[in-house]
Design a protein around this nucleic acid. Sequence first.
RNA 1: GCCGAAGUAGCUCAAUGGUAGAGCAUUCCCUUCGUAAGGGAGAGGUUAUGGGUUCAAAUCCCAUCUUCGGCUCCA
Length: 587
Amino acid sequence: MKKTVDKNLLAMRHTCEHILTQAMLKLFPKIKMAMGPAIDNGFYFDFDPQGEKISEADFAKIEAEMEKIIRKDLPLVKKELSINEARKLFADNPYKQEWLDEIEKKGEKATVYYTGDEFVDLCSGPHVSNTGNVGPFKLLSIAGAYWRGNEKNKMLTRIYGTCFSSKQELDEYLWKIQEAKKRDHRVIGKKLGLYLLTPDVGAGLLLWTPNGAIIRRKIEELIINEQTKRGYQHVYTPHIGRKQLWQTSGHWDLYRDKMYSPMKIDDEDYLVKPMNCPFHMMIYQSQPRSYKDLPIRLAEIATVYRYEKAGELSGMLRVRHITQDDAHIFCQPKQAIDEFIGVFDLIVYLLKIFKIENYYLRLGLRSPKEKYLGNDNIWKKAEGEIIKAIKKRGLEYIKSEGDAAFYGPKLDVIIKDSLQREWQCGTIQLDFMLPERFNLEYINEKGEKERPVLIHRAPLGSLERWVAILIEHFAGSFPLWLSPTQIMIVPVSDRFLAYANNILKILQDENLRASIDQSSETVSKKIRKATLQKIPYLVIIGNKEVESYQKDKNYQISVRTREGKDLDLIDLYQFIKSLKEQIGKFL
RNA sequence: GCCGAAGUAGCUCAAUGGUAGAGCAUUCCCUUCGUAAGGGAGAGGUUAUGGGUUCAAAUCCCAUCUUCGGCUCCA
């Protein structure tokens, strides 16, 4: 959930950014400063390098220059200027002139902050009183960023840094970044053998390796079972279809930059699907529908293909084919709200199962400026009811005006990854457009034709992204039901292999995912290996276990958890029972 | 796509213009071990790909591919 950062900390970071700018101008006088705010974890500074080559190798030099400014303990002094005075002050800086245009438009005065008499920047503050009050800082990274966040504008250079009140806090933060990198799904995914990305296949094209495939399959089973209980019907549809389908849906006109080029089959253009909607429309349309049949909920765990820009690809979090836990709900207009809430409840239910608590909801609403389909009443009612539902469950959300789809309001689940980057996962979208375009109908109580309302929804979003989020969330230590290998059997020596195989057979017959470490290694080594693989349970088989079996024909085993906890000699069937209780409905 | 950085054995990394190397993993041998690394030997590389500079290139230059950090965009 959103945290508010302490005001003093923000002021200090903002001042630190001014110090960075001042140092940069001293070292690289040619650059033109653009802007730089304090942010949640630090600050950044954007500038136009004007041909100057600056890289992380320069950080030490820049930091040393910043230290000098801090040591001088210069006062920060706020001054109000008229627009004209400010224009003169920043006469050679086009970026500041553009800011001043904005300020002028709003009819406000320009405020500037002087750092002693050495530096001045257009800025509304706040700042700390003196540069000497700025705590320990560190420059972190350098990157490109578009001027004012618009990709049509010039690409500027951005330097990220951070600053804290004490050395201890700074070190803790830097340590946290290092720790977070160990949780990265790309690091853990490689160690645990969950997926493969290789240039031989192509950028953004992901191969699910056996361990990853188990996790995905268990999630698919969960979703299908849960949806079946909630009245969904599951379908399968092809990966390609005639182009005209997406012309009808409007995607060919509005979404083409995300779609792959058409292919010719028997002289006809076909597309690889970027979404499943048209296929589900066809199924709905294939027979007359009565109001008594509605809602009809057509679901499919389906892979769709979308062109993502090369620089946007990122492990499993952003790929070029995504497997959505997709469904389309066709309902009467008066059922739309209940259906929306039903989906919302499903999402909350699933998030709880995965123990994901660190998320927020983004409600995409209309903005007054843009055009939308559908009538005003259903929009207003939908928005109101959605908000009520969220509040009823005590969840935080942010309203985002203008983030609605043009065919209806939507609710997205936003989750942060280990590196604090935000990713859109689940989504619910109300749609008044596609039923129109595909001419969908049902017969109402009076025998008249009526238009159904459509809800598009994917509670997890995509399985690729979802598994990435889970890997980082659990740091690879998946709950028992998701663990690729649930039990590793460790024979104390080769002599116990036969007995270990008996145990293996029993566990496998009980649908548990177990295997035996057959290597001629020491017990310690085998335990270490399995623990690093995050296997939840280790079953140790040695003389003790075999002897107890020979005595009374009861299988006894020693169990160790991946957390390092030893359990005493226990009965095998009791162990199986407790595992099955843990796994419960996920078996 | 844009700005910047990088690509060496399956993995993590070394080698700054002069014979490509280590640890882990893998294979074989010895060991047969009781709760986080037993010992030894072997195998493994056209240094991402293609071109160029040079007596000589992993190393310098160019192009392409891929990856990483951002920006933009998104499930």
